[in-house]
Design a protein around this nucleic acid. Sequence first.
DNA 1: ACTATAGTTCATAAAAACGGAACAAACGAA
DNA 2: TTCGTTTGTTCCGTTTTTATGAACTATAGT
Lengths: 114, 114
Amino acid sequence: MKPLQHPAIEDVTVEGILHALSDPVRVQILKEIMRSSAPKTCSDFLNLPDRVVPKSTMSQHFRVLREAGLIRSERKGVELHNTPRCEELKPRFGQLIGAILAAYAGEYAKGKGD
Amino acid sequence: MKPLQHPAIEDVTVEGILHALSDPVRVQILKEIMRSSAPKTCSDFLNLPDRVVPKSTMSQHFRVLREAGLIRSERKGVELHNTPRCEELKPRFGQLIGAILAAYAGEYAKGKGD
DNA sequence: ACTATAGTTCATAAAAACGGAACAAACGAA
DNA sequence: TTCGTTTGTTCCGTTTTTATGAACTATAGT
């Protein structure tokens, strides 16, 4: 099978990160992957609190996050175990990801509910 | 003529900001608008250091920045004077914009030149 | 009114995203 | 091995978004 490939840290771009995180579904995914102690799978997100996402679409969202360098996906049996790469990214991008997630959290707090 | 309209701060979204700043041309525009003491116009950016951008395209880039809430455009005679809204955004979004611009600056420093 | 300049809008083409259907990979059970 | 099941990817047609030249609008100066 095709080995999943992840960009090296030096190939990760701010542009790619911002594009990846300019989609609310991908933000939800990343937040949950960061929050959870156990690795999360693609299928864990097909039924979001506010919408249902087709699995082909979800697969694409994971690909975008992976290619942006935000998550790492490892095959474990029939599923993919996804974990955050935020710690790896921190030396290069500092507070970027934290600031983005904090801003989203603040936005929700101001009026859109949670 | 059509009065340019700008979103109220409470209508600005993180999603919109990230989308606007996931394009390198728009980042260059915002950085220069923030750096400059004098207001900048659309036409100031048609010949960027690394590429030429058609004015219809540039007009769209300004529209995206304006609708994202990142800049304010005021007509002065025949031209538009654009100024940053970052200070207005700060109470709502904190370090978000600063972190994004810092990350871009750091990325350039690492290898792509300036 | 005429000309020049700054931006916008329109029309169309190119690119990207969405999502259903078919496919592929890994596993367990017979 | 061969089924059957589960997970995720790929293919492909549709929809949406973006890019850009051409035409147009707005403002100012002469």
